[in-house]
Each structure stands twice: as structure tokens, then as C-alpha cells.
Design a protein around this nucleic acid. Structure first.
Length: 376
RNA sequence: GGGGAGAUUCCAGAGCGGCCAAAUGGGGCAGACUGUAAAUCUGUUGUCUACGACUUCGGAGGUUCGAAUCCUCCUCUCCCCA
């Protein structure tokens, strides 16, 4: 993997760049649609490519390991071939499931012992077998196994959690270096900064992560309930330590405003379920603000979902029609909303790139932040 | 023509003397959702000068301290037999 910075913003930490992977280039800043189970829910790959212009999608190691299972993905030749997606894939390690499936797991030095949410069967994820599993999945970018500590965490817990994450990271990174790709193309490994909302822990984590000199670095454990301002503070802190010449990935974030604030602070990559999940639930992110399409006020609004968009569903369909579909739980409604939201997120990233490149990012961001947070 | 069942808050449908402004589901309205156990979850849904008051359970009257619940008549629906 290779990362080249194109333009650095003068007034902020924002920058544009190009990540080159075995499955093609990624122009940053970038938003990566989440496709946990090898599918971005409700969105076909052709739509991802042609309408949304996604450059890379996510998969999830925990979920793919349980189903379809490595015994299917290996003979399939890896996830790319299995799902029919020839662009880059990043896989989360299952670290987030350590957090979100907390009742079904136990953490030890050795690893995370899980009870499958599907059948209750017991599994152990170690930093090593998570690397091996991601080798079998064949993701372009694999993530270290970490613990995403809940918010708030007291200092003692955060300290212990960070030590565990670092211990796991050391072993995972070692395993990565000792193993080779299974499908003849290069893979890379991103470590994850943790440390909850404690400046000394975050600093220590960012320094340790930086010292490994991996090809890219991630910030985890944010957007788990803390105020947005706190999140921004920690992005700033961590990014002041992480190497500038490596891509920085802010995991699980976020709202359109979060993305713009993150970019301003030097983040290059984002992923979030928000555009798809909230889209399915009737929340639309648009250039003018946020729409709850289920609201009665859109009942007879025959204007396009996003009139100036070059995504065809945005122009073809009216708000009233989309409302009708969502209210009636028609599958097509969830599909259109997901396509629209993702197209919007990718459009936003592309705009951000353009603004950084022509030196007007800060002014543009200020304007957009107000608009994007507006409830229509 | 004869016999039977029933009419409950937007709908369906509980309730069968006080704990009923009335269960539950649907619908309506609104909210939540941030590395997806989510096409999910939550709130609300008679009126008001609103932590209290007022008007509601087909209509009219009656019994009772007290009725959606008991009695009488009326109106209307549905079912069965001719």
C-alpha cells in the first residue's frame, strides 16, 4: 500500500491524498460504506460503483467468520471474489463487537472469548487468529484486534483496557509480519489508538501506535456516547502525534458534520453505518440538511430527493414517493434511502477534496456545518 | 315471518358494578440510531385555563353512594331457520 499526500490545507490540518492498494486507488478524504456481512445493506455493487461512487467498502471479521465462515471464504478465493467486488475492502477486526456484544464475551490477555450471537457457540478471538482470519478474507486493509472501551470508562478501566489493546496489538502486528497473503495480492495492517477520554492514555496510545510504523493508523473508541466536542478534542490530540505521512482512519464516524470536523483535523478515512441504517429508518442526509422522510410534512412534497445530485435515484424520485415507500416498509424505500445517503456522503467527501485542493476548505466547511445540521 | 348475537376511544378488539380516559394490536404523529445481533427501537395518540378538572363506551330513560358494565324501550348491524 502506498499513501501520497496531494495537497495540505494552509489553514487547518486537512489534506487530500491517494491511497494505492492492490485493488485500486482511493482518493482521500474518503468515506467507506459499511458492508458488514459482505453486503452494504440494501445496495447492490453496481449501485455502489456507478451511483454512489464508493471506492472502498468495509467487511467485518467477526460476522464473516461466523457466517459464511472461513471454510466458505477460503475456497471462494477470498471476499472480493465471493461477493464480486474488485475494489478495495477494509475489514474491521471484531473489536467493535467486543464493545457492542459485551454481554456475550469475556476478555482475557489471550483474547476475546465470544458467544456467537447466532447460536450461542463459544469462540475465541486472539490477535493472531484475527490476522489469520483476515488473511483468509483477503481484505486490502485489515484491522488490529482491540477493545473499544465504553463511554464513560473510569480511569482504572481505561488504563487496563488500553494495556490489553496494546498487548493484543503487539502480537497482532507480529503475526501480520510473519504471515503472507493467501491470494497473491498485498494486504496491509492498521493498528488502532484507544485510551478512552483520558489525554495521557490517548497520548501514550498514539505514541505507541506511531512507533510501530504501520502503513496507516486508526483512531478507535470515539463516537461511543461522548459529546462531539470531546471527540474533536481527542481527534486533534491523537492526530498531533500520529505520523502525517500515513493515512488516518477515524473508525465508526459519523454524521456529515463529524466528517467535516474530522477532515479539518487531519482525518483521511471514515466509515459509519449511519447513512445506511438511518436511511433504512427514514433519515435522509441532504445538502440542505436532515430530513425525517416519515414526517407528515413530506406527504405531498413532489420535489426531488436531491435536485442537484448526479445520482439518478435522487433526481428521479420525489420525497413524497420515498416517504410512501418507507412508511409502507417497501424494500425499495430502504434501498433508495441508502443509495441516496451514501451518494451524499461520497459527494460530500469529493466536495471536501475539491475545496482542500483549491484552498477554500475552512470557509466552505463553516458554511456546510450549519446547513448539514439543520433539521428540515 | 321466526330465532339468536352484537353495537366500546381513528380501526380491530378486551373489559362485564368502583382499581376505566378504558388492556392489547393496528393505524396516525413524533423521537432515537455513529468500526450494523437494527428493513430496528422508544414515546405519544378524548378535551382543557393540564401534576387537577371536564366530556366519553349506539340513543333515551331507570336501578345504585357509584354504570362501558344491571334493567326497560328505541335505532342499527350481523348470523341461522322459513
Amino acid at each position: 500500500m502506498k499513501f501520497t499526500i496531494e495537497i495540505k490545507d494552509i489553514k487547518s490540518k486537512a489534506r487530500t491524498g491517494i491511497i494505492e492498494t492492490a485493488h485500486g486507488k482511493i482518493l482521500t478524504p474518503i468515506f467507506m460504506p459499511v458492508g458488514t456481512l459482505g453486503s452494504v445493506k440494501g445496495v447492490h455493487f453496481r449501485e455502489l460503483k456507478e451511483d454512489i461512487k464508493a471506492q472502498i467498502i468495509l467487511g467485518n471479521t467477526y460476522h464473516l467468520y461466523l457466517r459464511p465462515g472461513i471454510d466458505v471464504l477460503s475456497p471462494a478465493g477470498g471476499l472480493h471474489k465471493f461477493i464480486g467486488w474488485d475494489k478495495p475492502i477494509l475489514t474491521d477486526s471484531g473489536g467493535y463487537q467486543v464493545f457492542s456484544l459485551a454481554e456475550n464475551r469475556k476478555l482475557t490477555q489471550e483474547g476475546a472469548i465470544f458467544r456467537s450471537h447466532i447460536d450461542g457457540s463459544k469462540h475465541i478471538f486472539t490477535p493472531e487468529n484475527i490476522v489469520e482470519t483476515q488473511r483468509a478474507i483477503g481484505s486490502d486493509i485489515m484491522m488490529a484486534l482491540d477493545e473499544c472501551a465504553p463511554y464513560p470508562s473510569d480511569y482504572a478501566y481505561a488504563r487496563k483496557s488500553l494495556d490489553l489493546t496494546h498487548h493484543w496489538l503487539k502480537r497482532g502486528w507480529k503475526k501480520f509480519q510473519e504471515t503472507d497473503p493467501l491470494y497473491g495480492f498485498e494486504q496491509t495492517f492498521f493498528p488502532i489508538v484507544q485510551g478512552s477520554t483520558y489525554r495521557d492514555l490517548r497520548t501514550e496510545s498514539a505514541e505507541y501506535v506511531s512507533s510501530l510504523n504501520c502503513e496507516g493508523n486508526a483512531i478507535g473508541g470515539l463516537a461511543v456516547g461522548e459529546p462531539a466536542e470531546v471527540m474533536y478534542e481527542y481527534i486533534e490530540l491523537v492526530n498531533s502525534i500520529l505520523p502525517e505521512d500515513k493515512p488516518r482512519y477515524l473508525m465508526g464516524v459519523g454524521t456529515p458534520v463529524n466528517l467535516l470536523e474530522g477532515i479539518e483535523r487531519g482525518v483521511d478515512m471514515f466509515d459509519c453505518v449511519m447513512p445506511t441504517r438511518n436511511g433504512r429508518n427514514g433519515m435522509l442526509f441532504t445538502r440542505e440538511g436532515i430530513i425525517n422522510i416519515k414526517n407528515e410534512k413530506w406527504r405531498s412534497d413532489f420535489s426531488s430527493i436531491e435536485p442537484d445530485s448526479d445520482c439518478y435515484v435522487d433526481v428521479l424520485h420525489s420525497k413524497a414517493y420515498l416517504r410512501h415507500l418507507i412508511i409502507n416498509k417497501e424494500m425499495l424505500g430502504a434501498q433508495i434511502a441508502s443509495i441516496h445517503n451514501l451518494a451524499f456522503y461520497l459527494w460530500l467527501m469529493n466536495e471536501a477534496r475539491n475545496k482542500i485542493n483549491d484552498g477554500s476548505y475552512s470557509e466552505w466547511k463553516k458554511l456546510m456545518v450549519n446547513k448539514l445540521a439543520t433539521r428540515l
